[in-house]
């Protein structure tokens, strides 16, 4: 599938009808989502024929992108039932077989490193401090191959240091810097649209000898 085609399909997905600020729900735009998954597939072969998990999937954009690019099994995890309902319908509209699980990522355990790749656009942790790093910590525990994630560019050094030293990542690399358009979704937003710089990261987890339950 071509990049433009992928972006087009993702652009048609339904997004949050009533986003919840406490969960920092911002839609992952089709531009960023398509580039993220396209890079994962075409530069690193981390998507097709793989098990891919989407952490904090919201309306399912990243997971659906993975399914469109040939992932064999996709699981979207989110804490919010309303988002999962939209995600479920988005996948169904495209006739994609995607599993969804309602769960708090911070309490999640996934046995046996069955998941190859985690893709995520975590809450940036502006409202709920540290939640983005909690997501990353769990992602690096459950993935066997790679973790793709978006983090604010202002946190670059911190993310790198924490991933390598505390979460035992084998490597942590910024693939590119992107502009994340945050549309005016919430009342506290004064400007019509804000553009923030985010890094697209690729982390490689350290392989474990024995899988734990």
């Amino acid at each position: 599938m071509k990049l433009k085609q992928l972006e087009g399909l993702l652009g048609n997905l339904d997004q949050f009808s009533a986003p919840k600020i406490e969960l920092e729900q911002y839609p992952t735009g089709p531009h960023i989502a398509s580039r993220m998954l396209y890079t994962a597939e075409n530069s690193f072969e981390d998507v097709s024929d793989k098990v891919v998990a989407d952490f904090g999937c919201g309306c399912g954009t990243l997971g659906i992108a993975a399914a469109l690019l040939g992932a064999d099994h996709v699981i979207g995890f989110d804490v919010d039932a309303d988002s999962l309902e939209i995600a479920y319908l988005n996948a169904e509209d495209l006739e994609l077989d995607v599993n969804f699980v309602q769960s708090d990522i911070r309490n999640l355990q996934c046995r046996g490193k069955i998941i190859d790749t985690v893709v995520m656009n975590p809450p940036f942790g502006t409202r709920n401090k540290g939640v983005d790093m909690d997501f990353l910590s769990v992602a690096l525990k459950v993935a066997s191959q790679a973790v793709y994630s978006l983090h604010k560019t202002t946190t670059r050094e911190y993310v790198k240091k924490t991933a390598l030293r505390e979460y035992n990542a084998k490597s942590a690399e910024v693939l590119c810097e992107l502009r994340y358009d945050v549309p005016k979704l919430y009342k506290f937003h004064k400007k019509k649209e804000v553009d923030i710089a985010v890094d697209l990261w690729r982390f490689v987890p350290t392989p474990t000898v024995e899988s734990d339950v």
């Binding site: 098990v51 099994h73 699981i75 599993n99 699980v101 309490n107 355990q109 046995r111 069955i114 339950v213």
Partner: peptide, 21 residues
């Protein structure tokens, strides 16, 4: 939900030592 998903999920309730399967 596929059985592949079932095969990786476990109960993580506090105090539970083996929540799988």
């Amino acid at each position: 939900m596929r059985l592949l998903t079932h095969n990786m999920l476990s109960s993580t309730i506090k105090g539970v030592s083996n929540g799988f399967p």
